[in-house]
Design a protein around this nucleic acid. Structure first.
Lengths: 97, 97
DNA sequence: TTGATAGGCAAGTGAGGACTTGCCTATCGT
DNA sequence: ACGATAGGCAAGTCCTCACTTGCCTATCAA
């Protein structure tokens, strides 16, 4: 489960997708493709982005809702929190009361 | 630079190494090999662990200091912080005053 | 109903990365 | 000096994964 989060974040393109979703939730596949090409110069096929979104969904970093022929994608940052807490030292560091 | 952090965290074995270092700093290569096999059943070659440590060092997640014929490895959790903050929404969430 | 739009499924290709194996260097104890 | 210990370098294998290509399904507008 949390293993998938690390794999999902390993790819640069997937991180760019999260960058786009953090600016605006509810984007469709085509919108993400367009924004990746205009904002980052990433000229990838639609199918490539679709597969990336599937990986992000499997990692629970992206939630999707289908409406008609559109499928909207929302960012979910919750799985990111356990990444840092995993390697926090038990001994008091800077921000421990 | 921060790109290397994601790549470093992508591998399960490297995450186990960080798990061992968070329990005790200053372990040598052989100590890490031994602990991986006893605590996690990971029977990898010494060279494999050495290469993993090199990746972790390149990502600045591990600092190393050489003393005589020993090389001690210390954990550095600092690069982990920017991972989560990258996708934090500007709009106030739960922990925003 | 027809055409256009939004998305999905499946197989194939190519490159990067994890791991091994073999050999070499450096430091310590006796 | 010698053997033992701790670690490094380099080439080779194998497999995962990112990406493409081709074709198929579903919804909307005219």
């Amino acid at each position: 489960m949390t293993e998938d989060v690390f794999k999902a974040l390993a790819d640069p393109t997937r991180r760019r997708i999260l960058d786009e979703l953090v600016e605006r939730d509810g984007q469709t596949l085509f919108e993400i493709c367009a924004r990746l090409i205009t904002n980052h110069g990433l000229g990838l096929s639609r199918q490539a982005i679709s597969q990336h979104l599937a990986v992000l969904e499997a990692a629970d970093l992206v939630h999707s809702r289908r409406e008609g022929r559109y499928k909207f994608h929302d960012l979910n940052t919750e799985p990111l929190e356990c990444i840092v807490t995993r390697w926090l030292r038990p001994d008091a560091r800077e921000s421990n009361p």
